[in-house]
Design a protein around this nucleic acid. Structure first.
Lengths: 289, 289
DNA sequence: CGCGAGATTGACTCGGGTCAATAGTAGTGG
DNA sequence: CCACTACTATTGACCCGAGTCAATCTCGCG
């Protein structure tokens, strides 16, 4: 039934553009293109690209929810930059189990893991309709001879990704389930803020299962932890709508009240609820892409 | 008691060389230097460095056991390649706890995480006397203008490191304690083999505590797991001397399969074709639009 | 409207963390 | 050479955090 095909994405001509903001891009031949300057801005890389690069254009491509951008083992030839939309990258183990590695969004680069072996080492799937900028790798390296600053841009992006993964390893190796979920929420909030969305109220683009896979937890643990945060007033939860109520507490959280509060929830939980005031179920609209 | 100070390493002149093999390097001005070709060989990067690069020399530096190569936050200016010896890289959290990120050895590159912010994001400590090759980053990028293949070497190394960290995340997120220890041993064995040492009998250069930190486990669990492997004949253990008896069993050991959503077994059929690019069965949404 | 995927919640189990006691090993100095 | 000390490793006892299994509940969509 639902074929998860890697069907041809459309390199948009007159196609349906989605509603998310689109800073970069211009029409030409009925397609979207971006120049090097815009690409660097998107990456938040402060590269002095002084020369006129108007003739140096990179094409955009659109992917719809569920489509794969690349799969594991596929021959590598291009890098991607997310201009809008949300994705996940996953590893597939020998039994077909998914391990989520990251949730790329605007300004993130995809495909870097393919450079080494010339085959993508992970799979990238669109969690929403996406607009990606294509960076053909050969073109990129060829450009390095003309625009030397490009080299540093690439080093910076790859190094940044490496640091991000190091932080991930640190988190998986050392933090409790609650701390992982808390930091995940904070990091999401920060990224939304960086993109100009609200950091206090947003929609998760991924399932509990995917969050759990990303954090090395089960979906039940993720769900329970979100409920617990909700109960003590750190956040509000309504399905995929998350409201951040106490970002500082989330940032520094290591472990929830160790023992007693959980055993007898009738007393302890109720008491906490009373102390903190009614969490109240305010449902508000979240940012939509 | 070894003070772990960051005292000046010696850029060897007549200094004590340790016992490990030293393929690359030549004497000049009483110091060891390597050319680009040797550096690439060390990295196992198949870069066609055709031109004569004899005048392009990189200096070696020695570090003694316990010395730090770089610390977190220190200004970044050079990359390192391990020519001989063993190290660990660690993250330090807000309470001073170490989180081991990797155990670099011959052919590995250090310092890449400093490129992005121009400050090292991790700390590198020598676990044995080490011989490292210095790659001043400015020199490296300057060289990119003359030797264009160097750019690809760097991309390859960084991408390789990224893939390694991805695998680490996958392991921490999905595998049981036994599986982690088993794979750790196998990967060590493979790396020793690649360096020309025995893959069947080797010495660990790190403590149980460091192994545990690396694998997201406690030192007790590591110790117990090694003892258990010893008891069922997979390995022999005597302090830091490890003998691999059944590498295949170690490679495939799982205990505690992350349990997959999927139907209850008939797994034999499902498992055999763990091919790349295979969409597999469940996962992945799809929304055929 | 009914179906199916996702989310929530409860009850139970157990892997691995914690605490603690013991023993093996190495470096230092008398 | 042997004690003295500090580190490292092994093992046992206990128990808690998170995984497992399972029963609803909700919601979006055809």
């Amino acid at each position: 039934m639902m074929s998860t095909q890697t069907s041809e994405p459309r390199t948009n001509s007159s196609s349906t553009m989605h509603s998310s903001p689109m800073e970069a891009g211009r029409q030409r031949q009925g397609r979207l293109w971006s120049n090097l300057k815009e690409v660097c801005d998107l990456l938040h890389i402060t590269a002095a690209v002084s020369v006129n690069t108007e003739e140096l254009l990179f094409q955009h491509v659109q992917f719809k929810t569920g489509q794969r951008v690349h799969t594991i083992g596929q021959a590598f030839d291009t890098l991607y930059i997310v201009n809008s939309g949300f994705l996940k990258t996953v590893l597939i183990d020998e039994f077909g189990n998914e391990q989520v590695l990251s949730f790329p969004m605007k300004g993130d680069m995809l495909g870097v893991d393919g450079i080494h072996t010339r085959h993508y080492a992970s799979e990238a799937v669109a969690l929403s309709d996406c607009d990606l900028i294509l960076l053909p790798f050969k073109k990129l390296t060829a450009l390095g001879r003309v625009h030397l600053e490009l080299e540093n841009v690439m080093y910076g992006v790859m190094s940044r990704e490496l640091v991000r993964e190091q932080a991930m390893i640190g988190m998986l190796g050392a933090l409790s389930a609650e701390a992982r979920v808390a930091r995940f929420l904070v990091s999401l909030a920060d990224r939304f803020a960086a993109m100009g969305y609200s950091s206090k109220l947003f929609n998760l683009r991924m399932t509990r299962h995917e969050i759990g896979s990303y954090l090395g937890l089960t979906l039940e643990t993720v769900s329970r932890t979100l409920s617990a945060f909700n109960e003590i007033g750190l956040i509000t939860v309504d399905q995929r709508t998350i409201g951040i109520k106490d970002a500082d507490a989330l940032k520094t959280l290591r472990r929830l009240p160790p023992s007693r509060s959980r055993a007898k929830q009738t007393s302890a939980a109720a008491k906490q609820k009373a102390e903190l005031g009614q969490p109240g179920d305010d449902q508000v609209l979240a940012t939509t892409i």
